[in-house]
Write a protein that binds this DNA or RNA. Sequence first.
DNA 1: TCGATTGACTTCAAGCGTGAAGTCAAAGAT
DNA 2: ATCTTTGACTTCACGCTTGAAGTCAATCGA
Lengths: 163, 163
Amino acid sequence: MSTTANDQGRDEPVRWLDPAEKEAWTGLVSLVYLLPERLEAPLQRECGMSLFEYLVLSHVSEAPERRLRMSELAFLANGSLSRLSNVVKRFERRGWMERSPDPADGRYTLAALTGDGYAAVVAAAPVHVRAVREAALDRLDAEDRAALARVAEKLRVRPVDLA
Amino acid sequence: MSTTANDQGRDEPVRWLDPAEKEAWTGLVSLVYLLPERLEAPLQRECGMSLFEYLVLSHVSEAPERRLRMSELAFLANGSLSRLSNVVKRFERRGWMERSPDPADGRYTLAALTGDGYAAVVAAAPVHVRAVREAALDRLDAEDRAALARVAEKLRVRPVDLA
DNA sequence: TCGATTGACTTCAAGCGTGAAGTCAAAGAT
DNA sequence: ATCTTTGACTTCACGCTTGAAGTCAATCGA
């Protein structure tokens, strides 16, 4: 069913997409589906980790004392708490991360990088950056990149808004 | 590990991201992770289908005689053949699609919508369009939308390139 | 002081995607 | 005519995400 078809009935009329909107939308959908795989493949092949796993490790590596609260980390990595919890559990098994209650407030859990975890993300960073350049950044000019940042800012939703 | 950190060693020097590049990249990553869920939720809740499932049905509904070759459909929906095969198998079980060898060339499989399948996508279309508008299009101006289409064209990779 | 409430986080069963392995039709070579 | 090669597609085991259900710490009200 084309999203430019006629109103199919509902309380308020459906505002179908015009051609320019459809082009933008189709483009966005293709990015959403095709881009992750292109970022994942080199990371999986060369470092044995997914893009999400890389992002998690990367955010923690940049935090003070290389530790973050799980809720903050979930937000930074754009994932759910349950997804993050499963991922960090796997990292604990690999010896890459450790979890502990936050001394300041027991309701929070801190996730910290181990030495092995830090080494893994340091090794993966160049692979990731190379993939990011090849898949995206090097194919865009400054105007494109500015537009991406602008669009993302306008569309971004904080996980709290999903609750 | 920040993607703006120093070279960690490799054959050719790593071209770390500058601040503008990092902002664009961070924005793109958040789109890739957060957008699908916002499109999925209303479709799952109101129509019992995922975004990918909707896209598959939608493309077939727009094809001549509401039938397409699996390879073409996989391309249009931005998914792999094995993913599509699994999805269409589920659609067959629901009574929404049928598969048959292409009479013109037995190497190809045709996927066709049934009456029930067509009704399902017709019902889902307004839900999808509403979600697309709320999550993305209505938050962007014409310049943003043009930029999205342009960026997607530059980054788009056809599935054949992934082989 | 104590019970109720709220929010952070974990767990795990169910469902889905991936990708290697396999099947099959058509094309090409001999 | 027959065998080999190629490409389309399917299958299925494995691993991952989701989200409901549950646990636990801190806060609030009586």
